[in-house]
């Protein structure tokens, strides 16, 4: 029987099995406690690090909570006007086809104001990766209704709950763009549980491998929480996400 080591001895003698990727900066994330953005950022950067392409990648940050993504991702980045990230990424990729290009967008950015840019970049099969974080709300501006807000869900601009008669139903953008021939991979993931994080990371890896193989547009939707906007604790928001978001936005590959 081996001797029992103290935690201090394990830290000293053991293998570090989880260390923050160097492709994340040391800046403190501006996100609320428990927000899924941090994990989505991290696994995206881990994929770039594991593929060894951090120095060949240009990221595009949106307007929304992740507007400051370039403060946290330690790669060259551009910040796009609200909704225009897929157009900005198109401009980069068309003139720098040998670089890896991705957008990181929220639901308001991608599915409301940027719908045209999203659909047409996908339809042209731009050889880019779109990371789409869907938390059903406008987080940055203080919890207003998003195109993905659930039926009956309360937000600051749907204080009596989203009325689909008046406001329509939550848009399923990933399913919509999956119908386009230019899209080679469309999947919906989540990052609120360890196993789901690992799956989401695999999906992001596949998306960047697709770009490497010049297959077209890959979109990875990540259903995430917005505990501040939903007015819940982080743990409760993840339970609410499972019970309410996932039935409407079911996880899994939609195409490819």
């Amino acid at each position: 029987m081996a001797e029992i080591l103290t935690p201090e001895e394990i830290i000293k003698q053991g293998e570090p099995v989880f260390v923050k990727t160097k492709l994340m900066t040391d800046n403190t994330l501006s996100y609320c406690p428990g927000c899924g953005h941090g994990v989505a950022h991290r696994i995206t950067m881990e994929v770039l690090e594991e593929m060894g392409i951090g120095d060949q990648t240009i990221g595009v940050a949106p307007v929304g909570c992740s507007v400051l993504a370039y403060e946290f991702m330690n790669i060259d980045m551009q910040q796009a006007a609200h909704g225009r990230a897929p157009a900005v990424a198109t401009g980069i990729k068309r003139l720098f086809p040998e670089k890896y290009v991705f957008t990181y967008q929220g639901d308001g950015d991608l599915a409301a104001i940027g719908t045209a840019e999203t659909i047409h970049a996908c339809n042209r099969g731009e050889n880019i990766v779109i990371i789409f974080v869907n938390n059903g709300i406008y987080g940055m501006t203080g919890g207003q209704m998003a195109p993905t807000t659930l039926e009956g869900m309360v937000s600051s601009t749907s204080p009596h709950g989203r009325d689909v008669e008046m406001m329509g139903s939550p848009i399923k953008m990933t399913e919509m763009v999956a119908t386009l021939p230019g899209v080679c991979f469309a999947t919906r993931q989540a990052v609120h549980k360890p196993g789901l994080v690992r799956k989401a990371k695999k999906a992001i890896r596949k998306a960047f491998e697709n770009q490497k193989d010049k297959k077209g547009t890959s979109i990875v939707e990540i259903v995430s929480n917005c505990n501040s906007g939903w007015k819940m604790t982080p743990v409760d928001s993840n339970i609410w996400l499972e019970e309410n978001m996932l039935p409407v936005f079911p996880l899994g590959d939609i195409k490819g």
Partner: peptide, 26 residues
């Protein structure tokens, strides 16, 4: 030289933004 017909004027100028941000003549 690459030429692209965008889906709108809005998209076109943002493509220019992306390309110009890479130091390209756009």
């Amino acid at each position: 030289m690459q030429v692209l017909q965008a889906e709108s004027e809005v998209a076109a100028i943002n493509m220019v933004y992306g390309a110009a941000g890479c130091g390209k003549k756009a």
